[in-house]
């Protein structure tokens, strides 16, 4: 089983930005987008997220798996919960409102009434902008961040040395464990174990995974003892760590961080200081349904 990381250098603008600055920007977008339901502010954040995503030069082929997952989330949250059942809009959109089809409508010769309101429809738009803004900045991380950079990035962002090193070490273990997993799977299949069988009840199906999970886990634990001893012999944790993959801020990284801070500060000020936090429907939207 070959493990392939999704990252590759694309010579994009994002590739030139320090991973710390990128993470700070992503979290600024997350906090800004979740601080308000104001559609104007959400539209601005959404546009910024689109530009940020475009700067990464990602192709559809690269990211389609992630977008498929987000599409399911969007469909459930927006189409099913907000538009069809009205559940997802609860608590944000006030009760009642103007019906989109006040007299109902005819479909296949039958008269149907549907309680979708203009307010709930606008909420779906706001919800779409909010979820997509967050998705755009976070979905690109696996594709734009070198796996060697995670440990040092989190260390430089303030995580303790040992925790950052744990992250670094886990990246190193993945190819070995993936190989062990493959060997175990092949060995169990060679013994005639029916991992793929769909027979039996739910508990039997779950228990059928055990001959795969248990040997892989126990092997990993046994081998970790030797690794820990080797690390202790080399004096692990006695001094501050240095990292092979060095990070260095450039002026444009500071510019990205400054932009993220200003954007977040601006959104928080407008949301909490200027009353732009709550959901409201613009008048022109009502005009479309009259």
């Amino acid at each position: 089983m070959l493990v392939a990381w999704n990252y590759r250098y694309r010579n994009s603008l994002i590739d030139r930005i320090d991973p710390r600055a990128r993470l700070i920007f992503s979290f600024a977008v997350l906090i800004a987008a979740t601080s308000t339901w104001n559609s104007l502010l959400l539209a601005i954040i959404f546009m910024i997220s689109i530009l940020w995503y475009a700067a990464a030069k990602l192709s559809w082929k690269d990211t389609k798996r992630g977008w498929m997952m987000i599409s399911i989330l969007l469909f459930t949250m927006i189409v099913v919960n907000t538009i069809i059942t009205g559940g997802g809009a609860g608590g944000v959109v006030p009760e009642g409102g103007q019906l989109v089809w006040p007299d109902g409508f005819n479909l296949f010769g039958r008269h149907l009434t549907f309680g979708l309101t203009v307010e709930r429809l606008w909420f779906a738009v706001a919800q779409l902008m909010r979820i997509l803004s967050i998705s755009l900045v976070f979905i690109m991380i696996p594709y734009t961040m070198d796996s060697r950079a995670y440990g040092v990035t989190f260390r430089k962002l303030g995580l303790p040395d040992r925790l950052a090193y744990t992250m670094e070490l886990s990246f190193r273990f993945i190819p070995t464990l993936a190989r062990n997993f493959q060997v175990t799977l092949d060995a169990q299949r060679a013994r005639g174990f029916e991992l793929d069988s769909v027979k039996g009840g739910i508990f039997n199906k779950i228990k059928r995974i055990a001959p795969l999970i248990i040997p892989v886990t126990m092997n990993a634990i046994v081998s970790s003892e030797d690794i820990a001893n080797a690390m202790d012999l080399r004096g692990f944790g006695q001094q501050k760590r240095t990292w092979l993959y060095e990070l260095k801020y450039h002026w444009w990284d500071y510019a990205v961080i400054a932009f993220a801070v200003i954007m977040l500060g601006g959104v928080l000020f407008l949301a909490f200081g200027r009353g732009m936090r709550l959901f409201h429907v613009p008048q022109w939207w009502y005009g479309l349904f009259n």
Partner: peptide, 21 residues
């Protein structure tokens, strides 16, 4: 300590591999 660092790293890597698989 050192052992916990290794166990945590092994555990995280294993979690990732099995989930991914």
């Amino acid at each position: 300590g050192t052992k916990e660092v290794v166990y945590a790293a092994i555990g995280a890597a294993l979690y990732a591999v099995v989930t991914w698989a």
